[in-house]
Structure formats: structure tokens, C-alpha cells
Amino acid sequence: MGKAQVLSRAKDFIYNNARLLDRKRYEYHLEGGSNVEVVDVLKAYQNQDGGFGNALEPDIRCPQSQPVPTELALTIMEEVGYFNPYIIKGIAKYLQKITLKDGGIPFVFKSASLYPHAPWWKSEEECRPSINPTGKILGYLYKQKVYTDCYQEEWFLKNEQFIWDYLDNGNPTGYHDGIQLITFLENIPDTNKADKYWPFVDDWLSRTGTIERNPLAEGYVHKVLDWCPVSTSYSRKFIPDVEINNHIQVLIEQQQEDGGWPINWPALSIGTELEWRGWITVERLRTLKSYGII
């Protein structure tokens, strides 16, 4: 299939099925669209408490703010290179409220269970800190420079210490933990301190099984291009060019007849599957663009 056909079919899928947010992400990445327009749509998912909910993470359908959708909002702003100061100040207000007494942010709150949700988005306790999403949240708060007053606030310092303690004593259990640590270490201002921990991360990434190397592996696995979605990804140094090219070829072949890419986990509903596929399809196009395929 030609490169132009891959893009044309994906574009049709996005405009037929994707959320406005993902249509705007597509326009930004592939058609010279506005990053301000992306973030203007993102604002609609923010609550009065400053956090994000309202199914920004499609498998968490509750309107109330949750930690992971708030992390996702930061991820989107970083992706398009525009951190809105109003949104960031709201996020800081929310994080101050939900940071645990000894540092760390919970994975999910019980309010998620009051609405439709994927089975993994439930919690019997709300007082256990989680590296996911604490690591990326602090990493991207450090990356943005529109609101830096929070860096010396107690809640922020507690969360930072939680991450250092995790690096000293923890053991990442998979992709979702790993990208939290990488994002934090890539953006922490104290690069000398970060340098102490990169060997630990590198050793873990190099172990058999951390990065799924089989491009045809099925099920909920995270393959080479999940770890290296763009050519500048940190994990890229662990993957030879020939392996990248093999995964790219399989990725192109996995584009479905309707032009979108599939998800590799059980869908909560028809609607959430389309929402996720819209997100994933933009992600796949970003990857193909970064590696010079489209």
C-alpha cells in the first residue's frame, strides 16, 4: 500500500469516527493545524477543581476528576508544544488537593466505579501512592515553564521525594511504570541527580521481556514502537534500525479496512472503542511521520 493511501484512509477514519480532540490533534500533526485549537478543545474536559475527567481517558467515564486523565491532559499539551497557563494552574490546584500525606498520587479514585469503566479502573483504597501517574505528572510540570511557583510547594516536593524513593527501592512492573520514570528523569532540572538513576533504567530496559520485540505479538503487550513512538524516544537507543523497520512494516499492515488502527485490549463499549481507535490512529500517524514514512 502506498504512503499516500495509508494517510488518506486514516484521515477518512478520523473524520468519520474520532473525537473533536483527536481530529484537532490530527490537523496539528499532519495538516499544519493549530496547537492552540487542540488545547482549546482539551479545556472542555477540565473540572472546576482543576483536574480532568469527563472521559478524557475513554475507559474512565465518570465526570469527576481523576489522576490519570489529569496526566493525559499534561501529555497532550506536551505533545503539541503548548502549555496553557490557566490549565496548568488548575492542575496544580487539583494535585495539591490529592497528593497523599507522605507523597505520591493515587492511581484511581472510587468515583470511577460509579460510572461505566474498564475493570482495571477500580480501587478499594484511595490512600496508596502510585508511580503511575506521579512520574509523568511531575516530569511534564517540570517541562512546562508557564507556571513554576509550584516547584517549591510542599505537595510538589513530597511527590518528587516519592519518585526518588521509588527509584531507590522500587521495581518497575511494566511499560506503564517505565514511561513514568523515563519522563520524570528526562525533565528533572537536577540532571546530576538524574544521571545516578539512568543506569538502573537502562538495565531494566535491556532485560529480555521489558520491550516486546516480536512485531506480531498479540494481546496487551507494548512493542518496540510503543516504547519508541517517535525517532527521538529515549528507548530508541536500545533498538537497531532493522528492528525498527520491521515493526514499522507490520504497523502499516495492521491498518484496518476502515482506515483506523485497532486497540489491543477489550473494548468497554462500541463508543469507547471508536474513541480509543481515533486516539491510537493519530498516534500511529505520528509514529509514521516521525520515522519519515509519511
Rank of each mutant, 00 (worst) to 15 (best):
L185I: 00
Q249D: 04
W198N: 03
D202M: 12
E37G: 02
Q152A: 10
I294T: 02
S269T: 05
V108R: 02
P189E: 14
I98F: 01
V41R: 04
I293K: 11
N171C: 01
Y175S: 02
Y26F: 15
E283D: 09
E37V: 02
I294V: 04
R9E: 07
Y151V: 01
L288M: 11
K289P: 07
A217W: 06
F107C: 05
E71N: 08
P215W: 01
G271P: 10
I182V: 15
P215L: 03
G278H: 12
P106L: 09
F238G: 13
L138Q: 00
S206G: 14
K143M: 15
V108L: 08
L20D: 10
Y94S: 07
I60R: 10
K97G: 13
L95K: 15
M77C: 08
Q152L: 11
D149G: 01
P85C: 11
L21T: 02
G271M: 14
P189N: 06
G51D: 09
N47E: 06
T75L: 10
Q64R: 10
E273K: 12
E124S: 04
W204H: 15
Y82I: 00
E212S: 06
G33F: 13
H222V: 01
A10V: 04
A10N: 01
A4D: 15
K43M: 01
I263S: 04
S130P: 08
L30W: 04
I76R: 09
G209D: 06
G260K: 03
V221P: 03
W265C: 01
G33Y: 12
I60Q: 08
L42Q: 05
N171W: 03
R207H: 09
F238N: 11
Y115E: 03
L7F: 14
D12Q: 08
T272H: 07
I131C: 02
I294P: 08
M77S: 07
I280Q: 03
Y142G: 08
K145C: 05
I293G: 08
D49Y: 03
K223A: 15
D165T: 14
G260W: 05
L7R: 09
N214C: 07
R207L: 13
G219C: 07
T191I: 06
I60V: 14
I91E: 00
T148I: 12
P116Y: 11
G170E: 02
C127R: 10
Q256T: 15
K97I: 14
T70G: 00
I91P: 01
D258R: 11
L21E: 03
F13H: 00
G178W: 03
R9M: 11
S123C: 14
F162C: 00
Q66D: 00
E126R: 04
P67T: 00
Y166L: 01
R284H: 05
L225C: 05
S130M: 10
S130D: 12
E31H: 01
P240I: 13
T191A: 12
L42K: 13
L181W: 00
E253N: 13
I163A: 04
W276V: 09
H247T: 13
I87C: 03
E79I: 03
N187S: 07
G32A: 09
A267D: 07
I91K: 02
Y166P: 01
E153H: 07
W155G: 12
E257V: 15
N35I: 12
D203C: 05
A73T: 14
W121D: 06
S269G: 08
P119Q: 11
G174A: 08
P63Y: 10
D59H: 10
I263G: 02
I248H: 00
W227H: 06
G260F: 05
Q48Y: 06
E78G: 12
I293P: 07
